[in-house]
Amino acid sequence: MSNLIIGLTGGVASGKSELTRRFEALGVHVADADVAAREVVEPGQPALAAIVREFGPGVLQPDGRLDRRQLRERIFADPAARRTLEAITHPAIRAALEAQCRQAPSPYAIAAIPLLAEAGGRVGYPWLDRILVVDAPEAVQHARLMRRDGVDEALAGRMIAAQASRQERLALADDLVVNDGEPSHLDAMVAELHARYSALAGAASPDGNADPLRP
């Protein structure tokens, strides 16, 4: 049962996956918002039933699963439809992430939320104890996107511009990792954060000694 929940966020191609892999290697449970977003619309889930009620059975594939491509086309053509979809899925995703983190076997857990700033930050996720932002200069994001996804510079720029600004993300940060070099340089930073979070989780535990007057 985790005593501390860390929200991890960052812009596209900032290095979120590099960080989560290192925390997982240390035995830390990571709940991924992208995974939760897929799971909450699986057949039998209340969110999928609500989507069908709002958008009609045409959003389903013959096997009963959500036709993501068809739904995506509809919501991007209609901002009101997008807001309706988000009103259904976002609460379900948040609840799933919180439940996974609170039930995690590690002393602290991480909720990896790429669009945390866009989803309301601390207001949208009041159960986060701390927020860790991984940051990279936009020039580095551009280069990584072009190399990783094979996109041109113009598309890379549009992908970055579609997200919250660096300033908006940095304003959320309790902890910051600047990832502007080789992935190997993250090892020491993750080790330092792991020690800090483990200590905070111990202090938050009912068995911890956060109160200096306790025996």
Rank of each mutant, 00 (worst) to 15 (best):
S2I: 08
S2G: 12
G11I: 10
A13K: 13
A13N: 10
K16R: 01
S17P: 04
S17F: 02
V30G: 08
A31M: 07
D32A: 04
D34N: 00
A36D: 05
A36H: 03
R38E: 00
G44C: 11
A49Y: 01
A49N: 01
I51F: 00
F55M: 03
G56P: 05
P57S: 15
P57C: 03
P57V: 10
D63T: 07
D63G: 04
G64W: 09
L66W: 07
D67E: 06
E73I: 01
R74G: 00
D78T: 04
A80C: 10
A81D: 02
T84C: 10
L85N: 02
E86I: 00
A87R: 05
I88E: 08
T89P: 03
P91Q: 09
P91R: 06
A92L: 10
R94W: 04
A99F: 08
P105Y: 01
I110R: 05
I110D: 04
I110Y: 10
A112H: 12
L115V: 06
A117D: 05
A119T: 14
G120E: 09
R122K: 12
V123T: 15
Y125C: 03
W127Q: 01
L128E: 03
R130H: 09
L132A: 00
V134S: 09
E138I: 11
V140I: 15
R144W: 01
L145P: 02
R147S: 13
D152Y: 12
A154P: 01
L155C: 05
L155N: 10
I160F: 10
A162I: 11
Q163I: 07
S165E: 04
L170R: 13
L172S: 07
D174R: 12
L176G: 02
V178G: 04
N179F: 07
G181P: 13
E182R: 14
P183C: 09
P183L: 11
L186S: 11
A195W: 04
S205A: 15
S205T: 05
D207R: 11
D207F: 04
